[in-house]
Computed example of a mutant assay.
Amino acid sequence: MSTYSIKDLEQLSGIKAHTLRIWEQRYNLLSPKRTDTNIRYYDDDDLKLILNVALLNDNGFKISKIASMEMHEMREEVVKLTEKNLTYDDQIHALTICMIEMDEDRFEKVLSTNILKLGFEHTMLNIIYPFLSKIGVLWQTGAINPAQEHFISNLVRQKLIVAIDGQIYKGGGKKFLLYLPEGELHEISLLFAAYLIKLKGHKVMYLGQNTPCEDLKSVYNLYKPEYLMTVVTTSPNSQEVQEYIDHISETFSEAEIIISGYQIIGQDLRFPKNIKTMHYIRQIKDYLEEIEEVSLEK
């Protein structure tokens, strides 16, 4: 079982620590535990409670009313709310509850409902990406455990693969080769890029995670793509990124290379002429439109 400080609860729920302490005293909403050295902490049940409280409170329920509810009553109200047209923040909040409870069925329902109402692309850009950014920060600070992060990432990955398979290539367009460098496993952004590229009618060769450079060269020589795309989140590390950029630029000098990721954006790096950086996933849409404009001019 994970343990949380009141600051962790604040980060996850959006409720100020000061407000949580007032609710704790006035309504006995929380019962913090104490370590042997008398440090206050909260457990998974406390976190689930506060996440539900936050969602209800944001949607007009008075705290006095919430405090009088049984846990099952609270959950029923939350489920009703998440099936309505809530704000993006509310939907992200609902997904956070699913993650903490590791409730796959509920996560699937929330996600499917949003995709039906908003469309897949809109749901990814406005709900899933902000949600993944949020849990990324929480994972780094230790507020959630790796199992919870992997649980969610795999569910999103499954949705992306289904969406990509639903895009039928009809011929024409440009050739894109998408891959992750050797040792790199974070592929959500690359999968979404593959979806958007196929949606625009281009041909995608997707190699995915952990692609050795020799294998990449072999596929490149066979497939002869006009564009390569990759994301560098953890591998290669910051000391080796510049060398890697120079290497792929020279090796695939006839292709235009789109590169993004934590190790790329905002770093003090030199980019050769055939490499284009992408700060946000939304930029891939603008880039694809530029490609279409150039094609039409020709």
Results as ranks from 00 to 15, higher is better:
Tyr244Val: 13
Tyr4Pro: 00
Tyr220Thr: 07
Gln267Phe: 01
Thr3Ala: 06
Arg106Ile: 06
Ala94Gln: 01
Leu190Cys: 10
Lys48Gln: 07
Ala147His: 04
Ile135Asn: 14
Leu55Trp: 07
Ser5His: 07
Ala94His: 01
Asn38Val: 01
Pro272Ser: 05
Tyr280Ala: 11
Ile39Lys: 15
Leu177Gly: 05
Thr82Lys: 05
Pro225Asn: 02
Thr234Leu: 07
Glu290Gln: 14
Lys80Ala: 10
Gly173His: 06
Met124Leu: 04
Gln148Trp: 05
Phe131Asp: 06
Glu289Ser: 12
Tyr179Phe: 15
Ser112Asp: 12
Gly183Met: 01
Gly60Asn: 03
Glu10His: 12
Tyr4Ala: 01
Lys170Val: 05
Phe252Trp: 11
Arg26Met: 02
Leu191Met: 06
Tyr262Phe: 05
Tyr42His: 10
Ile168Gly: 04
Gln242Glu: 06
Val79Cys: 00
Lys159Asp: 05
Tyr280Ser: 12
Ile164Phe: 02
Phe61Ala: 06
Thr251Tyr: 08
Ser68Ala: 10
Met99Trp: 04
Pro181Lys: 06
Leu207Asp: 03
Asp268Trp: 00
Asp89Gly: 07
Ile284Asn: 02
Ser218Lys: 12
Ala67Ile: 12
Ser112Pro: 01
Asn145Phe: 13
Leu296Pro: 06
Ala143Phe: 09
Gln25Arg: 13
Asp58Glu: 14
Asp246Ile: 04
Ile50Val: 12
Tyr280Phe: 11
Gly171Ala: 05
Ile161Gln: 08
Glu289Met: 09
Leu95Ile: 11
Val137Gly: 09
Asn85Leu: 04
Ile22Cys: 00
Ile100Glu: 00
Ile188Asp: 05
Lys48Ala: 02
Glu83Asp: 14
Ala94Lys: 03
Met71Lys: 15
Leu190Ser: 11
Lys117His: 15
Ser295Lys: 09
Thr96Tyr: 14
Gln11Phe: 09
Cys98Leu: 01
Arg21Glu: 00
Ile164Leu: 03
Leu95Thr: 13
Asp246Asn: 13
Tyr280Gln: 04
Asp215Trp: 12
Pro130His: 01
Cys98Val: 00
Cys213Arg: 13
